[in-house]
Amino acid sequence: MSIVVKKLVKKFDSQIAVNEISFEAKPGKILGFLGPNGAGKSTTMKMLTGYMKPTSGDAEICGKSILTDELAVKKLIGYLPENTPLYNEMYIREFLNFVGETYQIPNLKNRVDDVIKKVGLTAEQHKKIGTLSKGYKQRVGLAQAIIHNPEVLILDEPTSGLDPNQLAEIRTLIKNLGREKTVIISTHIMQEVEALCDEVIIINKGNIVANETLQGLKEKNKTASLEEIFRNLTSD
């Protein structure tokens, strides 16, 4: 198991954003993290990546606790945050070099060349990030997440706002990454779940309402339509 989440709780003042959720994720599988807006998907991801401290509970990434081994955990994770925040005034290469340096990657120049090729940024590599279109920015975000070849990839809505061509390309990329790594992606798009995910977790108001393989989920709910299952499980 490369991700083990144990009774993770996050409270904001009196509001409970994530309520004692527990789940596991294995390498070589893509886990889809679904839920309506405000369900606690991003909050969970922020806790796993060390951006926020959980109110209680714990999680282990490749056997290392997010509470006691923060720096080691951060080295194991590649994270694409929601809305892909990037330093707009930097050049693509400059930015990837910077990210690589924070991980102290040896042979950084070759590695930067590799990821630029891998995410399909070769033609744009000398541009400033601020001048790129949404799809290319998303690729830069993905490139910075995979630059240190992490065991675990956490991608928060990696395909929002892309056109159909870009969508297909990014999905193929994620699918390829998912062969060896543990990947968690969050999304609202049900076709994406069908196309990408092996396992599905549906979360509603901070609680897990389903945690199954894609096939198992359909059989259990006696319907092939994920959208219907999603609405049944998350409407009040």
Partner: peptide
């Protein structure tokens, strides 16, 4: 404001 702090904070830096 730009939300970029999350990039820094999730890198192996204290």
């Amino acid at each position: 404001r730009e939300g970029t702090y999350i990039i820094l904070a999730t890198k192996p830096l204290t």
